[in-house]
């Protein structure tokens, strides 16, 4: 076993994702399958290979620091499940 069901639960918590008992069992089984498959990468010696993060090397996409049009507060809040005034409203954070 590469990953236990309590690890799956912990990782889901890190991802702020509630999962059911049933999902936890199923994911544990499926993730082990996938991680086992992924384990084949260890066949390769990659010592000294520079990790690649992007396919096309573009660096520093700078532009002039000029104010351009933006969406504005009203439109930015238009999709919010709970907006009040100029703010996104959320349930309480601490008691």
């Amino acid at each position: 076993m590469k990953i236990s069901s309590s690890e799956v639960e912990y990782v889901a918590h890190l991802a702020r994702l509630e999962i059911s008992e049933q999902e936890k069992e199923k994911f544990t089984f499926q993730l082990n399958d996938i991680l086992l498959y992924i384990g084949k990468l260890n066949e390769l010696n990659t010592q000294g290979v520079e990790p690649m993060s992007h396919a096309i090397a573009v660096t520093n996409a700078f532009r002039e620091d000029r104010v351009a049009d933006s969406i504005g507060t009203e439109k930015s809040l238009a999709n919010a499940p709970d907006a009040r005034g100029e703010f996104f409203r959320v349930p309480k954070v601490i008691d």
């Binding site: 990953i3 690890e7 799956v8 990782v11 889901a12 918590h13 890190l14 991802a15 702020r16 994702l17 509630e18 999962i19 059911s20 999902e23 994911f27 499926q30 993730l31 996938i34 991680l35």
Partner: peptide, 22 residues
């Protein structure tokens, strides 16, 4: 956060979020 994401995402998306986070 946790309940919204539980209700909002389907199984494949959840599976990949868990693999990726791991």
């Amino acid at each position: 956060y946790k309940k919204t994401r539980r209700e909002g995402f389907g199984a494949e998306v959840k599976r990949r979020i868990v693999i990726g986070t791991y």
